[in-house]
Design a binder for these strands. Structure first.
Length: 291
DNA sequence: TGTCAGGTCCTCA
DNA sequence: TGAGGACCTGAC
């Protein structure tokens, strides 16, 4: 990978496994919006970034070399060799190989654990546009104004302290629905017990999964998503309706319960279960396989 | 008008 | 343990 600094931009050349569409549309994040020109704009760590693919180049707009080194290199997981991961997964079986070919540019973003916790609580029994809207409402009301980009104002995701200013009714007004009390209680839980989200990153996967489920509104699936996308637990295997479908279509899994399906997937793909899940999930959802 | 969506919680056996 | 129902919301 070659890194080139231009005016207010960083350009990445010769990146093998990086496609903004795959990365931002594979269901791992909710705060990147697609612009009319096909690029994506989002907010991370108080910075607004726009990402586009121009031929073989990846263009990161509205940034500089320092922020690239401090934030974006880690956020986009650029130290990881996705080619070798894909090679290993593709060798596992034909279906996974097809899924990897289809979503070749997926990378698992290293997102903020606290933001993932609240975001995936909102995701339960919900649709993606509604999830995005609720998170945006929360950010606009309780986060901090970051600035403008191409005429639009952007806000940071609120800290636990900032979000604690919201009542259950306030959260309902943000269109979180019946999850309002889950968010309220989880936020209160963190502040009152002085829980540090960073501690979850140091836990082993099983402990992390179990501890996350102690928060109200966090069941097995949501816990796995938070662990995978916010806590670097790459052996997590979130099982939702889509993954259940793919396991039955591709892997002869019988109609088993979700906890059993979770174990089935973790046993099947081992320490790379999270990566396998992402390629499979993106593949079946885009192709609407098994629906 | 009824169903359904990237689940979780609660209740009851 | 496991099954069954309720649950905000809004798009079809």
């Amino acid at each position: 990978m070659i890194i080139e600094e231009r005016e207010n931009q960083i350009v990445l050349k010769e990146v093998d496994d990086f496609n903004p569409v795959h990365i931002f549309d594979c269901g791992q994040c909710f705060r990147w919006t697609k612009e009319n020109d096909g690029s994506y704009t989002g907010v991370v760590k108080g910075k607004i970034l726009n990402v586009s693919k121009n031929g073989q180049e990846i263009v990161l707009d509205n940034t500089n070399l320092k922020d690239f080194e401090d934030i974006w290199y880690e956020y986009f997981d650029l130290a990881r060799d996705y080619s070798s991961i894909k090679k290993e997964l593709a060798a596992h079986d034909k279906n996974l190989s097809d899924a990897v070919d289809f979503g070749w540019g997926i990378r698992i973003l290293q997102q903020d654990g606290w933001e993932m916790l609240i975001s995936f609580i909102i995701s339960s029994n919900n649709r993606i546009p509604m999830i995005q809207r609720a998170i945006n409402n929360i950010s606009e009301r309780y986060g901090q104004e970051i600035g403008e980009y191409k005429g639009k104002t952007y806000y940071s995701f609120p800290t636990p302290e900032q979000l604690s200013k919201a009542s259950i009714e306030d959260l309902r007004e943000c269109k979180t629905g019946f999850r309002d009390k889950y968010i309220f209680n989880t936020t209160k839980d963190i502040l009152e017990n002085e829980l540090d989200i960073q501690d979850f990153l140091d836990m082993d996967s099983a402990t992390c999964h179990k501890e996350l489920m102690k928060f109200q509104g966090v069941g097995a699936k949501v816990s796995d998503c938070i662990a995978l996308f916010g806590m670097r637990k790459y052996d997590s295997f979130p099982v939702d309706v889509w993954v259940k479908r793919v396991m039955q279509e591709f892997y002869d899994a019988e109609d088993m319960s979700l906890p059993k399906m979770r174990k089935y997937g973790m046993d099947l793909f081992g320490e790379k279960a999270g990566f396998a899940q992402q390629y499979l999930f993106y593949y079946v959802r885009e192709m609407e396989i098994g629906k």
